[in-house]
Amino acid sequence: MNTPQTPGLYLNTSTTMTTPSAQALQAALGAGFVGIEIRMERLGPHPQEAAEVTALGGEVLSVNGLQIQIDASGRVDQPRLESELAERLALCRSLPSPYLLIVPPLTEGLSQAAALPGLRKALSFCKAEAAKIGAKVAFEFLGFPTCPFNTLASAVTAVDGLGIELVIDSCHWYASGAPALSAQVVHNLAIVHLNDVPSMAPASIQDADRVLPGEGVLPLRDFIGQLRTLGYAGPWSVETFNPAYWTQPPAEVARRAYAAGQAALSVDAAVPGA
């Protein structure tokens, strides 16, 4: 059985992507983070790093991630899904990590209506396989215009009745129009990702544009305030994909990321009028 997540602040290693995973964990713990979310983009080419992370004994909140591949006709690439799922669940078991994060496809020309049946079937399959090792899957929508599941409402539709938790990312929330949150959504959240974005059109935001919390224009006070007012008490994770951070000393990046995350969470984030 995997260890439960600890409410607190984690570092998603997308922020230190070129740093070996164990070194990233050491930097995160040294900065004050509870632990890390670990990236398959890093572990895939460097599988030996999983054992190095395990040897350190730090907490790994999630393995990121698995993208379900669906073609323009709505057909799931089942062989690829089964192969990638098995690889990632093996990591969840060995690290151990309680969550595997799943994201929707980015197939050109794929509509939400065409993708929905296959996506729900794939999510159910992933959930059943993860349960065999005591892990859970959590689904995150992507706020990019090219994604058929680019809003919170579409993510809720995707997991409705499946017993699967959600992940919400402040950047994707903002890019999708910064919708009001609901108690139903908040009570089904596994993890919240924190980051910021520079002043730019929300529809043009890409992963590499993200910056640390407080360094952009995203209304984090409102975002965090809604979550807290509605009762969110789970883990937070600082997640950026900005290559500018990857060339900097990981200990310094982790220190800045922790300070930025703590500053965002320490602000009186009450929702106006609540």
Rank of each mutant, 00 (worst) to 15 (best):
D209F: 00
D209Y: 01
V211F: 00
V211N: 01
V211I: 15
L212I: 11
L212A: 03
P213Y: 01
G214D: 06
E215Q: 14
E215F: 03
G216C: 03
G216N: 02
G216E: 03
G216A: 08
V217N: 01
V217K: 00
V217M: 02
V217D: 01
L218T: 11
L218Q: 07
L218C: 01
L218W: 07
P219M: 05
P219S: 04
P219D: 06
L220T: 04
L220Q: 06
L220E: 06
L220V: 06
R221S: 12
R221K: 12
D222A: 01
D222T: 04
F223Y: 15
F223R: 01
F223V: 05
F223Q: 00
I224W: 06
G225V: 06
G225Y: 07
G225E: 07
Q226W: 06
Q226S: 07
Q226K: 02
L227F: 08
L227V: 10
R228L: 05
R228P: 01
R228I: 02
T229D: 13
T229M: 08
L230W: 07
G231F: 04
G231C: 03
Y232F: 14
Y232K: 02
A233S: 15
A233H: 14
G234A: 04
P235C: 09
P235A: 15
W236R: 04
W236M: 05
S237D: 09
S237M: 07
S237Q: 06
T240N: 11
F241Y: 14
F241N: 09
N242Y: 05
N242F: 05
A244N: 13
A244Y: 05
A244R: 13
Y245M: 08
Y245R: 07
Y245S: 10
W246D: 12
T247H: 14
T247D: 14
Q248V: 13
Q248E: 15
P249M: 10
P249I: 11
P249F: 10
P250N: 11
P250C: 05
A251P: 00
A251S: 14
A251K: 13
E252G: 05
E252C: 00
V253E: 11
V253D: 09
V253M: 06
V253C: 05
A254L: 12
A254D: 12
R255E: 14
R256L: 12
A257D: 09
A257E: 05
A257V: 11
A259S: 12
A259V: 14
A259Q: 15
A259C: 04
A260R: 08
G261N: 10
A263E: 15
A263L: 12
A263S: 15
A263H: 13
A263N: 13
A264V: 11
A264R: 06
L265R: 05
L265V: 13
S266M: 09
S266A: 15
S266H: 13
V267R: 15
V267G: 01
V267M: 13
D268C: 02
D268G: 02
D268W: 08
D268R: 12
A269D: 14
A269P: 03
A270F: 05
A270W: 06
A270E: 12
V271N: 00
V271F: 08
P272D: 09
P272H: 10
G273T: 11
G273I: 07
G273V: 09
